[in-house]
Simulated scan of single mutants.
Amino acid sequence: MPKRYPPEFRRKVLDLVASGRRVAQVASDLDNSEQTIYVWRRQELIDSGQLPGATSTEQAELTAARRRIAQLEAEVAIHRRAAELLGEVVSPKGGLRRSR
């Protein structure tokens, strides 16, 4: 899992780059990777509307939606397994019918 940096730290790094410091120097000084800074800079351009793409807010919403979908899929799997164990079949309409 990638290391998470606080938004304040990201902002300060991007401010240093915007002030004219080289990305390589900022990365070296702050013990960060150049690629990480480039990703942050690109996301900043997307968030400000200068580049097309999903904004940080949209990405957060998508992540939350994917997490919720995974939870719901797990719940459905548990319910299906429980119904199998009880000898019942769940119909798509939500009703139950007994197995023969």
Score class of each variant (00 low, 15 high):
1 M>Q: 09
1 M>R: 07
5 Y>Q: 06
7 P>G: 07
8 E>W: 08
11 R>Q: 11
14 L>S: 01
17 V>T: 04
18 A>C: 00
19 S>G: 05
19 S>F: 00
21 R>P: 01
23 V>R: 11
24 A>F: 06
24 A>W: 06
24 A>V: 14
29 D>A: 10
29 D>N: 04
30 L>Y: 12
30 L>E: 10
31 D>I: 03
31 D>Q: 07
33 S>W: 06
33 S>K: 05
34 E>A: 03
35 Q>R: 14
36 T>C: 11
36 T>V: 11
38 Y>G: 00
41 R>N: 09
42 R>I: 06
49 G>I: 08
49 G>L: 06
50 Q>G: 08
50 Q>L: 11
51 L>Y: 11
55 T>W: 13
57 T>V: 13
58 E>K: 08
58 E>V: 06
60 A>W: 02
60 A>Y: 02
68 R>M: 03
69 I>F: 02
70 A>H: 02
70 A>L: 01
70 A>Q: 05
70 A>T: 02
72 L>G: 01
73 E>M: 07
73 E>D: 12
74 A>E: 09
80 R>F: 10
82 A>C: 07
82 A>R: 13
82 A>I: 11
83 A>P: 07
88 E>S: 09
91 S>A: 07
92 P>V: 09
92 P>E: 11
94 G>K: 05
95 G>C: 01
96 L>R: 11
98 R>L: 15
98 R>W: 12
98 R>A: 15
99 S>I: 13
100 R>N: 15
100 R>H: 14
